[in-house]
Amino acid sequence: MNPILFVAFLSMFPLVQMDDPLTFWTIAVEHDPSEQYRFLLKITKDINTIKKKIEAIPRNNFLEQSTREHILKHVPASLKINDRDARTVLREKIVAINEMQTKTIKQIDETICNRISFKSQGILDPSIVESYKNWVKNPYDNDHLKRIRAEYPTIKSKFENWQIIFIEEMKAADELRDEINANVNASISIIKSILAEPEKASETAELYFNGILDSILKRQKKLAKRLETVADVLFKYNEERMKCIEFLIEMRNGLDSEPKIVQLVPKNQKSKSKKH
């Protein structure tokens, strides 16, 4: 950003009375003439759509217990899969699929939605509130503005990298969800075959049903891994945004320095402070 524009858009905000530094930062970025700092607001422009889609995903069991046991009754008691009782093997896999769908993946999805809706408790911290109120009353320090400009390429690169990972992992997750749904639909056809032709249940269970359950589980595990990466990226993204807020209001001299409370500059010293 042009240094003059940067100072100009910052200098608007001592006149604005706000108790929430995050609100300040959001408004400041929205008024950024060059739009170079908008990457700090959202990790992707489709964030609300993504959140709504995740929240709308069904969390039902793949097969309820009564349905599962009804199907397994048609599997011959003598059938073995990898030298194990076939009914036990199939039951374990169905239970595992249910657990992944209704608990493991659901919990990760909820974590993602919470982090997408990030409202840090850090902004309620008395030290940040005090620092912010003092900062808006203090004259701007040109040296600190230079540090902000110097850090900008690093900040931008870091946030853009997280954005790339987020978008790629969410795309891969969507593809895996589609594959899982396709396999679930295929399993329904196989189940209908078992129920319609119980005399062929042994062959169908061993050659098809067991395989489709493995396919669903495999993709569920891949999905969970992708979603965990997304959740981790969002955690880092949100944590770094708080550091940026603290850096902006001079609680930090740099992103890697320790935060400290901003002291109010006495009136008799303000004329001696650096201004732009």
Score class of each variant (00 low, 15 high):
residue 137 K to A: 12
residue 106 K to N: 08
residue 116 I to A: 07
residue 157 S to P: 00
residue 170 M to L: 12
residue 112 I to V: 10
residue 141 D to G: 01
residue 95 V to G: 06
residue 125 D to R: 02
residue 95 V to T: 11
residue 155 I to G: 08
residue 179 E to Q: 15
residue 151 E to I: 00
residue 130 E to N: 11
residue 111 T to K: 13
residue 136 V to E: 07
residue 120 S to N: 07
residue 115 R to W: 02
residue 98 N to S: 01
residue 160 E to T: 11
residue 116 I to K: 13
residue 135 W to R: 12
residue 156 K to R: 08
residue 147 R to H: 12
residue 164 I to W: 02
residue 157 S to R: 03
residue 162 W to A: 11
residue 173 A to D: 02
residue 149 R to I: 04
residue 164 I to Y: 01
residue 101 Q to G: 00
residue 166 F to P: 04
residue 174 D to K: 15
residue 159 F to T: 03
residue 89 V to M: 07
residue 142 N to F: 02
residue 134 N to V: 02
residue 137 K to P: 08
residue 95 V to H: 09
residue 164 I to S: 03
residue 99 E to V: 10
residue 144 H to P: 10
residue 116 I to D: 01
residue 102 T to A: 10
residue 166 F to I: 11
residue 155 I to W: 10
residue 119 K to H: 13
residue 111 T to G: 09
residue 164 I to H: 00
residue 179 E to P: 05
residue 164 I to T: 08
residue 121 Q to D: 15
residue 93 K to I: 06
residue 100 M to L: 11
residue 128 I to T: 14
residue 143 D to H: 04
residue 145 L to W: 01
residue 91 R to Y: 04
residue 105 I to C: 06
residue 150 A to E: 09
residue 114 N to M: 05
residue 177 R to K: 10
residue 113 C to I: 14
residue 106 K to G: 03
residue 166 F to R: 05
residue 103 K to C: 03
residue 170 M to D: 07
residue 167 I to F: 04
residue 105 I to E: 08
residue 151 E to T: 02
residue 157 S to G: 00
residue 148 I to A: 08
residue 145 L to M: 09
residue 159 F to R: 04
residue 165 I to E: 14
residue 121 Q to W: 10
residue 146 K to A: 04
residue 135 W to D: 10
residue 97 I to F: 02
residue 129 V to Q: 15
residue 141 D to N: 12
residue 113 C to G: 03
residue 123 I to N: 08
residue 173 A to N: 00
residue 173 A to Y: 01
residue 98 N to D: 01
residue 118 F to W: 13
residue 145 L to C: 04
residue 103 K to P: 00
residue 157 S to I: 05
residue 103 K to A: 10
residue 132 Y to I: 07
residue 93 K to C: 06
residue 91 R to N: 14
residue 97 I to C: 02
residue 167 I to R: 11
residue 153 P to S: 01
residue 101 Q to Y: 03
residue 142 N to W: 02
residue 88 T to H: 07
residue 166 F to Q: 06
residue 89 V to T: 13
residue 110 E to R: 03
